[in-house]
Nucleic acid binder design. Structure first.
Lengths: 314, 314
DNA sequence: TTGTACGCGTTATCAG
DNA sequence: CTGATAACGCGTACAA
């Protein structure tokens, strides 16, 4: 292991100067700086994150707290996780994954996904900065990043209207969380604005449950109906049910929400609202550091986009 | 932050004694031990991983190296990643994710997935222990953990034979890697042992490509055929194609391989070979530490199991 | 069985 | 602008 002292020796300066070249380059003369950089290149010095952490009282570890059942976790969470790790890595941070809330001196901050209302109190009590993935409950002041759920479903609903579906229904998730409420509101708002009569169903987030729902209400479903779905999983089941008489996209239109994986492997491929996970991960990390470095609680809604594919008319 | 010294003060002993209670409890008297433990509980001491790392010249960081395109990474990799993080966490280790091979002083070991033959040389040259996820190429001596691919496909093939399908074909992946070769061999072996005529096709690992293949060869496909598929993605496409005339599982049987996610959301739900990712993750980590602590290169094949669902006869 | 002194690699402080 | 020194929290070697 080559360390600061080695570089210092090579460049004929003190350790402090080397450290400064790395951390406060503006406080050191140009000649010395270039000499030190050359020495660093020459002997292949890599700063030791551990020693740095010790003096700075930091850990360079961010915890990703998954409060949902890890076995049934959606692929989107997994993709978020990969992106997150990548962004953190760029900043020299490392990732710790946990499934339980616990106050831990060995981490610098927490990013939480899959939380429920009942977790919020415990999360607020934590001694390190926390950023929620998913909009914060109204009466709590916590940093969060979320996709703009309402806007996303508005896009979906408008798209169905514009492609000429007459009746438009919504199939949501039976959970009472901000994100699902927002999605429903996106539908209701758009319908109201366009003087359409709205109709909402709710199911658990499984394709087979959604399929069964459509099977059951199929007789009441007039042709030329559009179905806005709260998730791609639901959309998948809906398409299956509707296609038992080969109706998508001509007689029936379907739009999902998530835009990760399921939409691509399905047949026909789903028209969907895509969540930009790279952006979300970046924003999550940015807001964590905003809090870490400046104590500011930020929040951001990331704008999703419509991906037109084969379950709505061209 | 409460540290060793605080505990020592509370327990009226020296720091060293506290350290010993934690690391070499057998070298300290019972009374002192209990007193120290009480003090630790009382003031809520948590050992500082950073300071420990500094003296031990360790990082408590394991790198997970993903050499496949991170955007198209399969959900199974993601699930493996989650499990991995969990196992490491239990050992006080943290995760770093990388997509490029690089010699890095800030990690203690590397777990690699999605590697190709051409990566092996660079991986062997690394200065930290490496464990491959996926069987090592024959002429290289590297630690690896893999699901027993050959055995898995044997299970699949036998199952199709036992449930009475007459002709049995195999659809593999067009990549030349040990795991895909092993899967193909599992099919060929079983067919030979049962004096059956084998027939192998290869496609890219996408459901739509597999669907198209079946569409194309449908006329040559006699009824009562079983299809062994190298992945769930392929199986999904095969089922879709075959079901255009409603043939699964009566006229045609299909078995996939992976057992994560896709098999559950598909309709009908896929009969598949399940990879036990929790076990795989545990084994990957175990073998990494075997190398770290004892310099031993281990290898293990994890036994997968058949999940009977709705694409083969009962 | 228990304690003292020192060092791990880095950075902040303060002096030059 | 640059350098010497101390300190971060812990574990090892050695001493008592």
């Amino acid at each position: 292991m080559v360390n600061l002292a080695d570089v210092a020796r090579q460049a004929h300066v003190s350790k402090m100067t080397v450290s400064r070249v790395l951390n406060h380059p503006e406080k050191v003369s140009v000649e010395v700086k270039t000499a030190v950089m050359a020495a660093i290149d020459l002997i292949g010095y890599q700063p030791n994150r551990i020693a740095k952490a010790l003096v700075n009282h930091q850990n360079y570890v961010i915890q990703f707290l998954v409060l949902e059942d890890i076995d049934t976790v959606e692929p989107n969470y997994a993709i978020l996780l990969l992106q997150l790790a990548d962004v953190l890595n760029q900043k020299g941070y490392t990732l710790e994954i946990s499934t339980i809330i616990t106050d831990n001196d060995n981490i610098d901050g927490i990013i939480v996904s899959g939380w429920r209302q009942s977790d919020i109190i415990a999360l607020e009590a934590l001694s390190v900065p926390v950023v929620l993935y998913g909009e914060s409950p109204i009466d709590h002041d916590m940093a969060y990043v979320d996709v703009d759920n309402r806007y996303g479903v508005k896009l979906a609903t408008k798209h169905l209207i514009q492609t000429g579906y007459q009746k438009i229904i919504y199939i949501g998730m039976s959970v009472d969380l901000p994100f699902s409420n927002e999605r429903e509101l996106g539908y209701l708002d758009t319908m109201a604005n366009n003087r359409r009569v709205s109709k909402v169903y709710n199911v658990d987030n499984h394709s087979h449950v959604a399929e069964k729902l459509i099977d059951n209400i199929m007789t009441q479903l007039s042709e030329n109906t559009g179905v806005v779905c709260a998730t791609d999983r639901i959309a998948l089941g809906v398409v299956r049910a509707l296609n038992k008489q080969n109706g998508v996209p001509e007689q029936y239109g379907v739009v999902g929400f998530d835009g990760v994986f399921i939409d691509q492997i399905s047949s026909p491929q789903l028209t969907t609202i895509r969540q930009p996970f790279a952006q979300i991960a970046q924003s999550l990390v940015d807001h964590l550091f905003l809090q870490l470095e400046h104590g500011e609680l930020g929040m951001q809604r990331i704008v999703p986009s419509l991906i037109r594919r084969d379950t709505t008319r061209a």
